[in-house]
Design a protein around this nucleic acid. Sequence first.
DNA 1: TTATTATTTATGGTATATCATGGTATTTTA
DNA 2: TAAAATACCATGATATACCATAAATAATAA
Lengths: 155, 155
Amino acid sequence: MRKIFLFMDTIFNKVDAKGRVSLPSDYRAIVKELSTEIVCYRSLSAPCIEGCLEETLDKLATDIENATDFFSETQDNLTNLIFGDAKRFTFDSTGRIVLTEKLLRHAQISDTAVFVGKGRKFQIWNPENWAKEEARIRAEVMAHRPVLKAAKDEQ
Amino acid sequence: MRKIFLFMDTIFNKVDAKGRVSLPSDYRAIVKELSTEIVCYRSLSAPCIEGCLEETLDKLATDIENATDFFSETQDNLTNLIFGDAKRFTFDSTGRIVLTEKLLRHAQISDTAVFVGKGRKFQIWNPENWAKEEARIRAEVMAHRPVLKAAKDEQ
DNA sequence: TTATTATTTATGGTATATCATGGTATTTTA
DNA sequence: TAAAATACCATGATATACCATAAATAATAA
């Protein structure tokens, strides 16, 4: 089995009237090689869709199982929110998934979707929102550059 | 055998006069693939029905047998409640289960049931109650953002 | 390098299968 | 035998799988 998998790059794909989008071919290759599936959900922190491998969520479910007992309410809220929102997406022979109305609305996506790699996860943005977000992140990282450097030096 | 099984998504289905509801097809696929059954019981903490795979309850029974240290009186009482309340639900050729009066009353469900995925478990809600509950959870999770972040980072 | 060809990928359209749901028949059991 | 529970059938709506073409990328030869 593949040791390394990383969602990378930024890809612009068309979304048709039915919500169909081609999953970037690199992403598809990962899914195939690991014989798993993609899971998507509304990001809790931004107006975008978040995606990961099903096994990533499975790991989370197992962690929760082990960390708490069957009746625990500690993580109860979290599981409702995450798993209640998440949905499995399989792609057809041409490599497309069909995004739901709920997800598209949350990310304000109409005719174009931007896939942004995040390593173990990826995000799907509306092009304009992503442009703004990228600029914001760049600015913030630049502003915190010295802190980042200091943190590295400390190790 | 399937590597991963997760109850996910939020699905609204009709409940007819006999208490019949379609089990979401994704849920049915899991039951079929693992050749097990669905078990439902009244949630101990909320006005909803809780469901899981029979083998999940079996695991719970085993865990309690083995974990003598944690065999507290309260846990013992809880298991009495769960196992005493739990009931197997098989679906017919069209994929429907028939919920009992007791369960429907507890969840205040009349004509529509909302299936909410929770990973290894799922819940069945009355639509209005679920809307309120979801809002409550969202608010609470946002307030405890740092905890969420820590939990997410662990995966 | 540049031109040409071969492959893979993206995307529009359509046929097909699946699903949810109302209804009916059959079996169970009280 | 009546009442209830269960299994089966029918249908419209929806989602899925498949086909065809265009675009883009990679590979090969000049």
